[in-house]
C-alpha cells in the first residue's frame, strides 16, 4: 500500500509541478493536493479527518465556530486566518492541526491503501483551497515523510491487509485490569472503537484522530496479536465494506459548505 522502495519520486507529477513552481490543485480519486508556488499548502482526502473534524471532535471548537469561519473566510480563501484573527485559535494551534491533517491526507492521496485507486494526475491550474495557506511544505520534505511513514508501517507489521479490513479484536487477548501489560493510550482508544465492522480509517474518523496514526496503531495491535490479520486476498470478515454513516456529532452545515467547495473544485478539474 505504500510507496515502493526505489520508486523514482523525481518523475512523479507532483515533483514536476514542484520543479515548475506551479500553483493549483492536483486531483485524484483519493483526494487532492493544493500547491502554491511549487510548495504543498493543503491536502484533503475523504478518508482522512479534516481540520474541522479534528478541532470539533475533541471540543476545541464548537461546530458553530468552525462553520462561521468556513462561511465568512472561505469565499476569500482565508478561513484559517479568520479563526486566528477572531481569537478562536492560536496561530500555533492552527499550524499544528493543519500540518497534521495535511501530511495525513497527503499520505492517502499519494499512496492509497485501496490499491485500485491510482495516484493523482489531474491538475487544475490556479485552484486554491478555502482554508487559505497556513504553513507551506516543500515537496521533497513531504516525499521523505511519506517514505518514512511507509517504512514505519512495514516495520510494525508487514501485512497491509489490516489497513483496509474491518478491525476485529481477538477475544480474550487483552489482559484484564489496567496493568502495565495492556495496550497504551492511542491503541487502547482504537481497540475500544473497534466493533468488528469499522475499518481503520472509519475508526480514525469516529475519534477525530490522525488516520495514519490509527493505521500504525492497528498494525501494532495486529503484531501484538490483539486484532486479527485477514488472510492475503481473502474477502474481509464482516462482508462488504461498511458504508453506513458513522455515529458522532457532525457539524452539518459546515460539512455542506466544505462539500460544496470540494464539488466545485472537482467539477472545474474535469
Amino acid at each position: 500500500m505504500t510507496i515502493a522502495p526505489g520508486t523514482d519520486l523525481a518523475s512523479t507529477p507532483l515533483a514536476r509541478l514542484a520543479a515548475e513552481g506551479a500553483t493549483g490543485a492536483l486531483h485524484g480519486h483519493a483526494g487532492a493536493l493544493y500547491l502554491a508556488d511549487g510548495a504543498v499548502v493543503h491536502a484533503e482526502s475523504p478518508v482522512v479527518p479534516d481540520v474541522g473534524r479534528r478541532l470539533t471532535a475533541g471540543g476545541r471548537l464548537s461546530a458553530e465556530a468552525w462553520e462561521e469561519a468556513v462561511a465568512e473566510g472561505g469565499p476569500d480563501y482565508r478561513a484559517g486566518r479568520f479563526l486566528v484573527e477572531h481569537g478562536r485559535l492560536s496561530r500555533g494551534e492552527l499550524e499544528l492541526c493543519h500540518l497534521s491533517a495535511l501530511f495525513d491526507a497527503a499520505y492517502f492521496v499519494l499512496s492509497p491503501p485501496d490499491r485500485s485507486q491510482r495516484a493523482p494526475e489531474r491538475f487544475l491550474k490556479e485552484a486554491r483551497h478555502w482554508l487559505g495557506p497556513v504553513r507551506p511544505v516543500p515537496v521533497p520534505l513531504l516525499q521523505r515523510e511519506l517514505c518514512r511513514r511507509g517504512d514505519l508501517l512495514r516495520r510494525a507489521w508487514p501485512w497491509p491487509e489490516v489497513d483496509t479490513a474491518p478491525v476485529v479484536p481477538v477475544p480474550g487477548a487483552v489482559p484484564s485490569g489496567a496493568s502495565g501489560a495492556g495496550p497504551t493510550c492511542g491503541r487502547r482508544a482504537v481497540l475500544e472503537a473497534a466493533d468488528g465492522v469499522r475499518t481503520p480509517v472509519q475508526i480514525a474518523r469516529a475519534l477525530g484522530r490522525s488516520a495514519f496514526a490509527t493505521l500504525l496503531d492497528v498494525r501494532r495491535l495486529a503484531a501484538a496479536g490483539l486484532v486479527r490479520t485477514p488472510a492475503p486476498g481473502a474477502p474481509a470478515e464482516g462482508g462488504p465494506r461498511a458504508r453506513t454513516p458513522l455515529p458522532g456529532p457532525a457539524p452539518a452545515a459546515a460539512v455542506e459548505v466544505s462539500l460544496l467547495y470540494r464539488i466545485r473544485d472537482a467539477l472545474e478539474a474535469l
Binding site: L96, C97, G208, S210
Partner: peptide
C-alpha cells in the same frame, strides 16, 4: 510534550 485540545503528537 505539547498539550493540545485536539488530536496531536508533538
Amino acid at each position: 510534550f505539547v498539550e493540545t485540545a485536539f488530536d496531536s503528537s508533538v
